[in-house]
Nucleic acid binder design. Sequence first.
DNA 1: TTGAAAGCGCTAACAA
DNA 2: TTGTTAGCGCTTTCAA
Lengths: 325, 325
Amino acid sequence: MTIRRRPTINDVAAEVGVAASTVSRAFTVPGRVNPRTRQQILEAAERLGYVPNPAARAMGSGRTDTVALLVPDITNPFFSGIIKGAERAVGAAGKTLVLGDTEESPAVEARLLERLGPAVDGFVLAAPRLPDADVRRAATRNRVVLVNRVVPDVACVVADYESATRQVVDHLASLGHRELVFLAGPAESWSGAQRWAGLETAARARRMLATRLGPYAPTLDGGPAAAEAAIASGASAVVCHNDMLAIGVMRRLADRGVRVPEEVSVVGFDDIFGADFCHPPLTTLAERTQEAGAAAIEVLLHRSGTPTVIAPTELKIRASSGPAA
Amino acid sequence: MTIRRRPTINDVAAEVGVAASTVSRAFTVPGRVNPRTRQQILEAAERLGYVPNPAARAMGSGRTDTVALLVPDITNPFFSGIIKGAERAVGAAGKTLVLGDTEESPAVEARLLERLGPAVDGFVLAAPRLPDADVRRAATRNRVVLVNRVVPDVACVVADYESATRQVVDHLASLGHRELVFLAGPAESWSGAQRWAGLETAARARRMLATRLGPYAPTLDGGPAAAEAAIASGASAVVCHNDMLAIGVMRRLADRGVRVPEEVSVVGFDDIFGADFCHPPLTTLAERTQEAGAAAIEVLLHRSGTPTVIAPTELKIRASSGPAA
DNA sequence: TTGAAAGCGCTAACAA
DNA sequence: TTGTTAGCGCTTTCAA
């Protein structure tokens, strides 16, 4: 199909015989234009197929009515909840949400920030991979709210990792496990660091032995290597950086003939789609991702200052964890 | 943090002592500016933290170097492949990809099209929910490529549903099934219609009885109702609109004590993340989603006219299908 | 190789 | 209530 020029505000103005500014007002401050004039304008716009150009609008006014949400991996079901929550909140505010997938790459993340920056009112950065300095820099050019990452002076909403890790350790302890290994994700992962720190503290309080192995890729593909290491460690309980890794680990354990949970208990983080129908169903720490996504948008849109919102967490006990052998 | 004004091309021009147009050229047509001048400009830009504003750029030039990919449900793992494929192709072309989730809503889809239209060079619409007329209209304002949807005169890449459905029917027939029920998705779904049409044709050729039930929501939540209907039908094989529904159906069957595949075989479409580790692992028709996503971008960026690309499909046989009872 | 100037589509004073 | 006039940040003629 051949692409036609979009009609502009001037086309509408000419059609009706008014000034462009009047057309502009008809759309932006309806109260300040004669109802009859407005009616004519709206009709002409409809007839011509005119739609305000948000980019041009933004240049003059500075507002875009659009916010961007950047996630490291759109494939990871963990971020789906955040996206859905953000969508709800953005929709309720009458704004538009655009999504960006940073592909776990700081470079891509920076590019997106740069590219989208002038076109949006603000960013929600879910578990950003960028160094603190870059996050802070982005925050000087746009409003920024982080999810599951803390950078001084930048607003954020984070899961309650302290409670989360305590729940995990208490659960394992109550099943009689005396030691656990943590199969770590990427070294740069802020949430990974929080999880390990929490586990270690909670384990010490329980007089359990906690060991960290890794890093491993936080994906299914990270599973085999992590599983081998876990087997070699001889621990009766393994806690994985996230569910993707945990599922990958369980697969490998199955391949190796190691029974879960009879010989090894496996626990994940995130409660992703699939965690309850994988085999065996995965015990995992659920974050309130939808709430977190919505909260982040709330903060971005309405709150000033640099608030920190703590989102509650909940341990979902399923069949992948059981009594120590 | 307090938001600071972005430096503009004028700030850089003033800093270096050249005209704004020279700065512009330094970024857009490097060949047509003195290497030394250019060097100074680049340094000044770096120093001031100047980054070209893509929106402003687009207003003057019409090009944005950005393309948008709209999917009905970012949560649905089926679209992840398309997204990943599109990302790869867009990255290779040095452009930027933004994502939009239409939330299965034609209204949201229209809004996104409208909002993003002036800000992008083109759209890839994956399985759009919009009526043909609206899709065509969008295609008069932007370049548009469809995935798994056909609208006359609009470029598209579609899965080979004819082969796909034949593979499914042949598989079931070879297992001794004499009839199948198709648990349909949304009535408006183009791909759903293709799937049913193909199944019906293939079944007739095999002298199998094919019945359609539904529509059901193409989600886990659609499962219970669909499963009840499937049980009531007494068929030994059910083919589901997609994997999400299939997994939902299998869950319900399990709850109802119906064994899969001993009593009922279940087949899905999409081969989503989770299809191979749900219980039992799901037999499903895999589309080459990454290739489809990449192909769509190729067409959008490079090809003119209104090509139709047919993507191959492959039946993944797993444990959810077995011999007829 | 560079600068001046017009214009992209729209908003926002300022007058009238 | 409406029109006029500047911009917003950038690209793109057209001249020099």
